Computed example of a mutant assay.
Amino acid sequence: MVRLTSMNKQGVFFKGAIVAATLGLAGCSSEPASLQQGPDAEMTKDGLVRVDHSKLDLSYARPNVNWSKYTKLYFEPVKVTNDHPADYQPPRIDKRAEGLNATYELPQEALDKMSEQFSLTVKEVFNSEQPFELVAKPGPNTLVIEAAVTDIRLSAPLESSRRSFNSMGRTYTENSGSMMLLAVIKDGETGEVLAKAADRGQGFNQWSQNTQVFNWGDVKTVYRRWVNDFKNALMDAGAK
């Protein structure tokens, strides 16, 4: 049996106040990222201003920050959860086709592995060739990055839970799914929130057999894009 599944793009999910962070660069626009100006500028309750032309779905940053003084980065362990927004409607599972145990929720083992992979990606991107030092604790001239990966939406039930996993059946999807990054950047000495952001990431849109290997490759691709965007944004902000 061959099953085809398509996944529609999902909107940005915010849990309470927007929890997020990074300075984002240009998305679809070729214009550089910049804070909104004037009386109509969109601002959060804690004084952060909306960043226009961000590569992320939504970014806010504090005005008049001297980003060039930050030479060290401390990443809190990333939290990866199966949490969803209150209005989330889980996909309907065809028990006859997928089996009685089919599920779209990842087990804790997979969530822990995703958290570990995020840390590995950070170390790969911020290597010795980059102008930032990864440190083990917050301190002067340090940015603290608190991030969470949540609202994970698979485009097919978990491979090991499908009836087709132990049969000759195959499931093909346009992409493996999507997940939401929520993050916040703070000053390592004062704890002041300097920026917030949120972004939904997904792998490339190409029809492929939906397997654990294929899905894991997409996770790594999304992580690398997020961390590279953050690195490039920091370098651009520090150069201004």
Rank of each mutant, 00 (worst) to 15 (best):
A20V: 10
P140C: 07
Q206C: 03
P157C: 14
A156P: 04
K113V: 05
F204L: 10
A156M: 04
L154Q: 06
Y88C: 10
S115M: 11
K137F: 00
E146G: 13
P77W: 09
R3T: 05
S164R: 00
M43P: 12
D187T: 13
N210L: 01
D83Q: 04
F13E: 03
P131N: 12
S29F: 10
S29E: 08
A33N: 08
A147E: 14
V78A: 09
G38T: 10
W67A: 08
F230I: 08
S161M: 13
K240T: 06
D40P: 04
S6Q: 04
G24K: 06
A156G: 02
T211V: 01
R153N: 02
S161K: 07
K123T: 07
D151T: 01
G177T: 02
L182H: 11
P90V: 15
V184S: 03
D218P: 12
N232M: 14
I145W: 15
D52F: 05
C28V: 09
L4F: 03
N66C: 02
H84W: 15
L182Q: 14
V122G: 02
D187A: 15
R224A: 01
Y223M: 01
E98P: 11
V149A: 09
L194P: 14
H53C: 13
V2G: 00
L23R: 10
E109M: 03
M179H: 06
L4C: 05
L23K: 12
P39V: 03
A21K: 09
V227G: 06
S119N: 05
D218E: 15
M1W: 04
M235N: 12
F132A: 13
Y60H: 05
E129F: 02
L35F: 13
K79C: 09
L73A: 05
Q89V: 15
V184H: 13
N215I: 03
S208L: 14
S208Q: 13
S208V: 08
E109S: 08
Q117G: 14
V51T: 13
G203H: 06
M235L: 14
E159T: 14
L23W: 06
T121W: 04
D87Q: 09
S155Q: 01
E109I: 05
R200G: 07
W207G: 14
N82K: 10
T211P: 00
T121G: 14
N141Q: 09
P107T: 08
R62V: 11
I152W: 00
E31Y: 13
A26P: 11
G217P: 06
S176D: 15
T211N: 00
V125D: 04
A136Q: 02
S115T: 09
D57F: 11
V122P: 03
F118W: 11
R170S: 07
L4I: 02
L56M: 07
S119L: 14
M179E: 02
Q89S: 07
T173D: 00
D40G: 08
G47M: 09
A136D: 01
A33D: 12
T121S: 08
R153L: 02
E159D: 15
F132Q: 04
A26H: 13
N210P: 01
V2N: 01
N205H: 04
S164F: 00
R163K: 07
V19H: 10
M180S: 15
G238L: 13
A41W: 03
D83W: 03
D151Q: 01
A20W: 11
S115L: 12
A197N: 04
E189W: 05
W216I: 02
I93E: 12
P107R: 05
N127I: 09
V222N: 00
Y172M: 10
M168E: 13
K196G: 15
H84F: 11
N175V: 06
